[in-house]
Design a protein around this nucleic acid. Structure first.
Length: 427
RNA sequence: GCCGGGAUGGCAGAGUGGAUAAUGCGCAGGCCUUGAGAGCCUGUGGCCUUUUGGCCGCAUGGGUUCAAAUCCCAUUCCCGGCGCCA
């Protein structure tokens, strides 16, 4: 959420940002917001004046009653005012609500370094690491490899839960756990605190962390309960300190979350949906930092370095991309993606690193104070990045480490987590 | 799930229907001091307002009443007891 004061005082900054994002629909919403905001303040002043009169009368009544005098006249006057006040309050509430609804939909201010562009085609590659594997045979895709090795049962997953669900079997489950342990050990060594968050969140917590359209397109709702399955550990980690004021010296708070993730994937038609790439349920290790506004951009780079180092240690060929203005999400100020090489020669996203600046923190009301006993100073910044999404990383391992005979080599860094197993073979 | 107790400012804690939410601690500023401390004074939730000022705020949402932190109902969370349970 943006600061309403910024919109009142410097609307040009907000307009320029919407233009940079290419979001002309929200440009109109901004004008509506200003109208409702002005009207809200006008009516609020009126209502406050009426309420003041009401308080004066209430005091008069109290005094009359104490003196054992008749107060009927004042009581009658008070009742009339009550009617006026509640009518005004209704109006006030309406305008406030409308203004707030729009405010919740306006996207975060982009960082100056975000390149201008329309969609993912305009994202800019900034680093390429490693080289595609040299294969002297025609490569198979991960689904074919996994099926041949008896590591995945797509049909039965679909039978019991529908398309996008799988039974993962044998060494592929081991590989999933190995990746989790590998990433967790790496992050702990870097000084991050390991957290397993709740896998469901209430609506109120969830509204603070994400684009509102995600409620239709991404999250599963639990029927009859005010609970949503998390789409990523980012969400419960961000909401963890909701309505709290943290001490500046306690910052930064560096977390590594481990969780299953659940996604509806509505509107994924036309996207790559094969096998492990786009599942309704997968496991992910997530990096998250709460920090002082002054140094969030440094930590954004730190998280990026962590993620790249993980893929490097796994020996997985990838490239790093900075998202252009049109492809950067509502909540994010700047995003790097890591795109990994797949056997069909395409690079596809395996992780996403975003500085949300104070946007999530303002919605979640997470502030900091300079010193114990002082008033809160401002909102802190939140940064989130994938460490490893195991599904997509396993996919990349299967495709990049595949051998002619259908077996798959285990990346060196994972062998110790696989009880010494060096190769996945049919058995 | 049932029964009981509770939720007040940054913190502790008073207030059981009527005035400014007392008091203490912390924090900020000032006086004093060579300096620090002690002591003293002032301030220290949010919103609207150029100012003066006003409104809201006692977990959240409703209700009763001329008037609610205070009474009633629902919800959330915390503590204790019972039950169920991996």
């Amino acid at each position: 959420m943006l600061d309403i004061k910024l919109i009142r005082e410097q609307p040009d900054i907000v307009k320029k940002n919407l233009k940079k994002r290419g979001d002309f629909k929200k440009l109109q919403m901004l004008d509506a917001l200003t109208i409702h905001d002005v009207e809200w303040r006008r009516l609020l002043t009126l209502a406050n004046e009426r309420r003041h009169e009401r308080r004066v009368i209430t005091k008069q009544i109290a005094n009359l009653k104490k003196a054992e005098k008749a107060a009927e006249k004042q009581i009658e006057k008070g009742r009339k005012l009550d009617v006026e006040i509640s009518a005004l309050e209704k109006q006030v509430k309406k305008h406030k609500q409308t203004a707030n609804d729009i405010l919740m939909r306006l996207p975060n201010l982009l960082h100056a370094s975000v390149p201008i562009g329309r969609n993912e085609n305009d994202n800019i590659a900034i680093r390429l690491w490693g080289k595609p594997p040299i294969l002297d045979f025609s490569p198979r895709d991960h689904l074919e490899i996994a099926k041949n090795l008896n590591l995945i049962d797509e049909e039965r997953g679909a039978k019991v839960a529908g398309h996008g669900f799988f039974y993962i079997k044998g060494y592929l489950v081991m590989l999933d756990l190995a990746l989790q342990r590998f990433a967790i050990d790496f992050m702990i060594e870097k000084g991050y605190q390991l957290v397993e968050p709740p896998f469901m969140l209430r609506r109120k917590s969830y509204e603070g962390v994400t684009d509102l359209s995600d409620f239709e397109n991404v999250m599963y709702k639990v029927e009859g309960e005010d609970l949503y399955m998390i789409a990523t550990a980012e969400h419960p980690l961000a909401a963890m300190f909701m309505n709290e004021v943290l001490l500046k010296e306690a910052l930064p708070i560096k977390l590594v979350g481990v969780s299953a993730c659940f996604r509806k994937e509505v509107g994924s038609h036309g996207k790559y949906t094969k096998g492990l790439f786009r599942m309704h349920q997968f496991n992910k290790i997530e990096q998250f930092i709460f920090c002082h506004p002054d140094n969030s951009w440094d930590f954004h780079e730190e998280l990026q370095q962590n993620a790249e180092e993980l893929y490097q240690r796994l020996g997985l060929h990838h490239k790093v991309v900075v998202l252009c203005s049109g492809d950067t999400g509502t909540v994010q100020a700047k995003t790097y993606d890591i795109n990994i090489w797949m056997a069909d020669g395409t690079y596809r996203e395996v992780g996403s690193n975003s500085n949300c600046t104070d946007y999530q923190a303002r919605r979640l009301n997470i502030r900091f104070r300079e010193k114990e006993g002082q008033a809160p100073k401002g909102f802190l910044h939140t940064i989130n990045n994938t460490a490893l999404a195991t599904s997509r990383t396993m996919l990349a391992i299967l495709e990049q480490y595949q051998q002619k005979d259908g077996s798959v080599l285990v990346p060196h860094a994972l062998i110790k987590y696989m009880n010494g197993l060096k190769k996945l073979e049919p058995h």
